[in-house]
Simulated assay, not measured.
Amino acid sequence: MPDTDQPRIIADTLREQIAVGQLCPGQKIPDDRTLARRFGVPRTTAQSAIRRLHDEGLVHTVHDSAFVSDILTPHTPESGREPRYTASTITDAALDRLYAELYQLRRQCRIHRSSAAGSVAG
């Protein structure tokens, strides 16, 4: 049976790009029109995928653009959502792992950006 949950497929693809450093903290993700064209789906489907990532705290929106969130930045009370990490739910070991993951993600982003800049210049 084919997978028909297109918003999940799009969100999974973007989540993977974030995980491998193709989309870096602070970087704008493709807009709903671009995602709709890329995946051959209606814009509302792409918007639903972006909303899923927003609800997970992986992206934040500014006006009509979505950006990759810094994974250690908790949601603020103004956002109407609970923080992803709080002092009562995170241990020192977990925090150390998160910092290590963030370091690796930022390192991958620098490598990806420098190789992309080199291919454009070359």
Score class of each variant (00 low, 15 high):
A87Y: 12
G40T: 01
T89Q: 13
A66M: 01
G57C: 06
L35C: 04
D55C: 03
G80I: 04
T89I: 13
R51L: 02
R84T: 10
E78C: 10
A49G: 00
A46K: 07
T76N: 00
L58E: 07
S48C: 14
G80Y: 05
H63N: 14
S65N: 14
D70Y: 09
L58D: 12
V59H: 02
R33T: 13
T89N: 15
F39E: 01
I50L: 14
I50Q: 14
E56K: 08
P42V: 10
S69Y: 11
H54K: 13
I71F: 14
V62E: 10
H75E: 11
T34W: 06
P42N: 13
P74Y: 02
T44L: 13
I50V: 15
T61G: 11
E82S: 06
L35T: 01
S88W: 15
E56V: 05
R38T: 12
T73C: 07
F67I: 12
L53T: 11
D55A: 11
D64W: 05
D55I: 00
G57P: 00
Q47K: 03
T89E: 06
D55F: 03
T73W: 02
S48P: 08
T76L: 04
T44F: 02
R51W: 14
I71C: 13
S48M: 09
P77K: 03
T86F: 03
T34Q: 03
L72C: 12
G57N: 00
L58Y: 09
R37Y: 07
S65G: 04
S65R: 13
S65P: 02
T34H: 02
E78S: 10
L35I: 05
H75G: 10
I90R: 15
P74R: 00
T91D: 06
R38E: 06
I90T: 15
A36G: 03
P77D: 03
G40Q: 00
L58H: 04
D32Q: 14
A49H: 01
L35Q: 02
S88N: 14
E56I: 00
D64H: 15
A36Q: 04
T34P: 02
G80L: 00
I50A: 10
R38I: 01
S79M: 00
D70E: 11
P83N: 10
D70Q: 08
G80H: 05
H54P: 03
A49M: 03
I71Q: 14
F39Y: 05
R51E: 11
G57S: 01
D32M: 08
R51D: 11
G80R: 04
V68H: 06
T45Y: 00
P77G: 02
T76E: 08
S48A: 15
A87W: 10
T45K: 12
T86Q: 10
R81G: 04
D70S: 03
T61P: 01
T61K: 14
A66S: 15
V59K: 01
R43E: 12
P74E: 10
I71Y: 15
D70F: 07
A46N: 08
G40H: 09
T91Q: 05
R84I: 07
R51H: 07
R81E: 15
I71R: 14
R37E: 04
A46V: 10
T44K: 09
T76H: 08
T91K: 05
R37N: 08
P83H: 07
D32I: 09
P83K: 07
L58K: 07
H63K: 14
